[in-house]
């Protein structure tokens, strides 16, 4: 069996890469993908601790997170399509309509 620190460390690394992708990239679709990466890291933590404490509740929470992520992606991509229809671009740096 593997030390529990390995999956936890991997989850931390993946989460931080998600943060970097979220802030650094300009394409709105890639930003959403980085968000999925962070969701995934959180899921890995839940599964690791479900295994560690021999509780099934962690797996249930992963199901709820998956549902929330699916809903978020559906609404987010619909917003991106709507933005693209107006501006013909999904670059977030060009969405400056609200700038005073």
């Amino acid at each position: 069996m593997i030390p529990i620190a390995f999956p936890l460390g991997l989850a931390i690394i993946l989460f931080c890469m998600g943060i970097v992708g979220f802030i650094v990239r300009k394409n709105a679709i890639v930003i959403f993908m980085s968000l999925e990466l962070m969701f995934n890291a959180a899921n890995l933590l839940f599964i690791t601790f479900a295994n560690q404490f021999q509780q099934v509740d962690g797996q249930i929470f992963v199901i709820f997170i998956m549902v929330t992520a699916a809903a978020e992606v559906a609404v987010g991509l619909a917003m991106i399509v709507t933005i693209f229809r107006g501006k013909h671009n999904v670059d977030i740096d060009q969405l400056t309509n609200l700038k005073g």
Binding site: M1, P3, A5, L8, G9, N51, V56
Partner: peptide, 18 residues
């Protein structure tokens, strides 16, 4: 992670019931 979780703590074997 390094200060709080010892490397000797391992995951448990997959449990058929869980």
């Amino acid at each position: 992670l390094i200060t709080r979780i010892s490397i000797s703590v391992t995951t448990t074997a997959p449990d058929a019931l869980l």
